[in-house]
């Protein structure tokens, strides 16, 4: 973005539409309040006073998928839960992103058995994987920063 003062000294910002929209999207992401297991506690920890995720424009966790655009899959997804998860994803309005938080959501983790889906990417498309069992709040925040970088690189021709 560049500030231009050509027109009589008025403050004006010139930028591309792409950049402006991506900047707005990263600055106010609304994650869905959706905790599954152990990682949800660390996700709560990331929002609480000590780590304070609202520094990055996401203090509002929305309980309704209709009002959110970021799904943090925090914990192990069981085969019984997977249809619910997909339904929640389908209810989210576009644009929407998914962060797979923790080993279980990323690849099944230590639970390689009949009950657990081996990676939530079998159900919903995942943008960022965060490793750890459970990941520290810093790791989650780093994962979300990585997602911000990804969103900033999105192209206008892909939106259609």
């Amino acid at each position: 973005m560049g500030v231009s003062r050509k027109l009589g000294g008025l403050g004006a910002v010139t930028t591309t539409l792409e950049q402006a929209v991506n900047w707005a999207r990263t600055g106010a992401m609304w994650p869905m309040l959706f905790g599954l297991a152990c990682c949800a506690i660390e996700m709560m920890g990331a929002q609480a006073a000590h780590y304070d995720m609202s520094r990055f424009g996401m203090e509002l966790m929305r309980a309704s998928p209709r009002q959110s655009d970021l799904m943090i899959v925090a914990g192990r997804v069981t085969r019984k839960m997977s249809p619910v998860l997909r339904q929640l994803y389908d209810q989210m309005p576009s644009p929407k992103w998914v962060v797979a938080m923790g080993d279980c959501a990323s690849c099944g983790g230590i639970f390689n058995n009949y009950a657990i889906v081996q990676g939530v990417d079998e159900i919903v498309p995942v943008d960022v994987y965060v490793a750890g069992c459970p990941p520290r709040p810093e790791q989650l925040i780093h994962g979300i920063m990585t997602l911000h970088e990804k969103v900033k690189g999105e192209k206008i021709k892909d939106w259609a």
């Binding site: 297991a37 069981t78 019984k80 619910v84 639970f111 009949y114 009950a115 657990i116």
Partner: peptide, 26 residues
Amino acid sequence: IGYLHTGIEKSMESKTYVKAITMTDR
């Protein structure tokens, strides 16, 4: 209930005793 049924008891049967402790944490 059962939306978080992880099969911990079954998984522990396939592990040695010391490795199975890891599962109890969760």
